[in-house]
Computed example of a mutant assay.
Amino acid sequence: MRFARIAGLAAAAVLLAACGSGQVGGSGGAPVENNKRLTLIPGVQAEPFYISMQCGAQAEAQKLGYTLDTSAPQKFDAALQTEKVNALGSNPPAALLIAPTDDTAMLAPIQQVAARGVKIIEVDTSLKDTSVAQSSISSDNTAGGQLAADTLAQLVGGKSGSVLVLDTIAGTSTTNARAAGFSEQLKKYPNLKSVGIQFTQNEPGEAMSKVTAALASTPDLVGIFATNLNTGEGAAAGLRGAGKAGQVQLVGFDASPSEVEGLRNGEYQALIAQDPAMIGQQGVQQAVAALEGRPVTRNLTAPLHSLTKANMDAHSQYFYKQSC
């Protein structure tokens, strides 16, 4: 889950000419022949992670002869995302690609769409109930957290001290898994002690205040792991304001343009980059396979990459996009 600064993102639609088969239920589950329309509902508007995902999905949809519409909520919020799901109404797409903003609260609205015969593909985040989606595509977020802990330990070296974990919102499957994986892996490094996981409600200002408070209460703070873009930006601002940028090692998640710039100028010491374009591509592939009666893979994972200032230019293909 990846998340970013809230801004407007126009809904994207690509009209495609290629042909193919596919059936899906309409209102009440009645079959609709040759429905070639897919809808992507990401977690939030204008976030480079989700834009990159959309780009990958759009390209694959065009390749396979389907259209893709994107409709994103203005904030990473279950109520706002529910409105987007409900707006599909009596003319649903053949398949819905969705990044659930809450692993429990989004169950009912997604079930209602599925009851109309729509194929459900989870991208990035997922529901706790595994019976609804045909396929879930995500990074291995637990492994991503573990990679972040290993990376931070390498950056710190043998220095002893405390480490703060900044997560987003309880119930967000991706970032919660990252925080848990990081905390468990950190136990392998006896010189590093976790001071716990703090939630920021996915607001940079909250993350900044948490870092400011931690710097005051924890003089031996040597590292921070921020589980997504907003927490990372807030953490970077907090460290910058305290004159601690580069002294406290900051490992962020994702590789948005602002994070990449921060890595280059020393506000971040490492980023754990996902491959959102691949997630979007695979999401469309699985949706089309489900629609055309071909085998579907229930769970797929996309690769993760540890970026530092030393290796970032050699891995620039993993930098996220702001437009397709």
Score class of each variant (00 low, 15 high):
Phe3Ser: 11
Ile6Pro: 05
Ala7Gln: 10
Ala12Trp: 12
Val14Lys: 06
Val14Gly: 03
Leu15Ala: 13
Ala17Val: 12
Ala17Gly: 12
Ser21Met: 11
Val24Asp: 05
Lys36Ala: 11
Thr39Ile: 15
Ile41His: 00
Val44Ile: 15
Phe49Val: 07
Ser52Met: 06
Cys55Lys: 04
Ala57Phe: 00
Ala59Gly: 00
Ala59Arg: 05
Lys63Val: 03
Ser71Asn: 06
Ser71Trp: 00
Ala72Asp: 05
Asp77His: 01
Ala78Arg: 02
Gln81Ile: 14
Lys84Tyr: 06
Val85Trp: 04
Ser90Trp: 01
Pro92Asp: 15
Ala94Asp: 10
Ile98Lys: 00
Ala99Ser: 15
Ala99Cys: 14
Thr101Arg: 03
Asp102Ser: 04
Asp103Thr: 10
Ala105Thr: 11
Ala105Arg: 01
Ala108Tyr: 04
Pro109Ser: 15
Gln112Ser: 13
Leu127Ala: 06
Lys128Leu: 14
Ser131Trp: 06
Val132Phe: 03
Gln134Trp: 02
Asp140Glu: 10
Asn141Trp: 04
Thr142Lys: 08
Asp150Cys: 10
Ala153Tyr: 02
Ser160His: 06
Gly161His: 04
Ala170Arg: 04
Ala170Tyr: 04
Gly171Glu: 08
Thr172Cys: 07
Ala180Lys: 08
Gln185Arg: 15
Leu186Val: 09
Lys187Leu: 13
Tyr189His: 07
Tyr189Met: 07
Pro190Glu: 11
Asn191Met: 12
Asn191Trp: 06
Ser194Leu: 08
Val195Glu: 15
Ile197Pro: 01
Gln198Met: 10
Gln198Ile: 14
Thr200Tyr: 09
Ser209Glu: 13
Ser209Thr: 15
Val211Asp: 03
Thr212Asp: 12
Thr212Trp: 01
Pro219Trp: 06
Asp220Ala: 10
Leu221Trp: 02
Val222Trp: 03
Ile224Asn: 02
Phe225His: 02
Thr227Phe: 03
Asn230Ser: 09
Thr231Ser: 13
Gly232Glu: 10
Gly234Leu: 06
Gly234Tyr: 03
Ala235Trp: 01
Arg240Leu: 13
Val248Cys: 09
Pro257Met: 09
Val260Leu: 07
Glu261Phe: 04
Gly262Glu: 09
Asn265Phe: 08
Gly266Gln: 04
Gln269Arg: 08
Ala270Ile: 08
Ala270Thr: 02
Ala277Phe: 03
Gly280Trp: 03
Gly283Ala: 14
Gln285Glu: 14
Gln285Val: 14
Ala289Ile: 12
Ala302Pro: 01
His305Asn: 10
Ser306Glu: 13
Thr308Lys: 01
Ala310Glu: 15
His315Phe: 09
Tyr318Pro: 02
Tyr320Met: 14
